[in-house]
C-alpha cells in the first residue's frame, strides 16, 4: 500500500508555499515564480516513485525549485527589464519594519542569482551552510563567502539608503 505522505496532492498542498516563495524571491516575478512552481511540481509527479521519505520530498522540492528559479532568473535577465519591477514582490509582513523589509526584498532581487539563492535558502528556509551547499552543489566555503558578501552588500546598501540604524548591533 502507498504511504500517505507519498500522495501527490498532499505533498503539493503542503509545500506549494515553500516552492512558490523560493521561486518568487529568486526570480522577483510572480508569473515566472508561478510557472517555476508548476514546473517543479510536475517534475515531482514524474519522480514520485524515487522519493524515499517526507524529508527527501522537501529536499528534492527545494533543490529543484532553486535550480529552476535560477534558470528562469538568468533567462529573464537576458530580456528587457521593463517587466521585472520589484512590484511583483510580495507585500511585506505586517510585523517588523515594513519599509525596511520592502527595501531588502528589492536589494535581494538585485544580487547575483547564486548569491540570491544562498540568501533565500539561509533566511527564508533557515538552512545551514552545509545544507545549502548540498542543494546548490557547491563547496560549503563558497556558500559561506556568498553569504558574507551578500550580507555585506545588503548592509552597505541599507545603510546608504536608511542610515546606520540597521547596521550591526
Amino acid at each position: 500500500m502507498r504511504e500517505p505522505w507519498r500522495d501527490f496532492e498532499t505533498l503539493l498542498r503542503e509545500h506549494q508555499s515553500m516552492v512558490f516563495s523560493i521561486a518568487l524571491r529568486i526570480t522577483g516575478d510572480r508569473p515566472a515564480a508561478e510557472e517555476v512552481a508548476q514546473d517543479v511540481f510536475l517534475g515531482l509527479y514524474r519522480h514520485l516513485g524515487d522519493i524515499e521519505s517526507p524529508e527527501h520530498a522537501t529536499a528534492w522540492l527545494r533543490k529543484v525549485a532553486v535550480q529552476r528559479a535560477i534558470d528562469a532568473a538568468r533567462h529573464a535577465s537576458r530580456l528587457p527589464r521593463a517587466d521585472m519591477e520589484a512590484n511583483d514582490l510580495p507585500d511585506t509582513p505586517g510585523n517588523g519594519d515594513a519599509l525596511l523589509a520592502r527595501h531588502l526584498e528589492r536589494l535581494i532581487a538585485e544580487l547575483p542569482e547564486q548569491m540570491r539563492a544562498v540568501i533565500v535558502l539561509r533566511y527564508q528556509e533557515e538552512l545551514m551552510p552545509s545544507e545549502i551547499a548540498r542543494i546548490l552543489a557547491m563547496p560549503v566555503a563558497t556558500v559561506k563567502s556568498n553569504l558574507q558578501r551578500g550580507l555585506q552588500l545588503l548592509r552597505q546598501q541599507t545603510e546608504r539608503t536608511l542610515g546606520k540604524t540597521h547596521g550591526r548591533s
Binding site: 518568487l24 519594519d97 523589509a101 548591533s169
Partner: peptide, 22 residues
Amino acid sequence: MDDLEQSLRAALARVPAPAGLA
C-alpha cells in the same frame, strides 16, 4: 545575529501560493 539578519528573516517569510495554483 545582527539586526540585518533579523530583518532578512522577516522580509523573507514564506508567502502563500497564489489561489488556484494547486
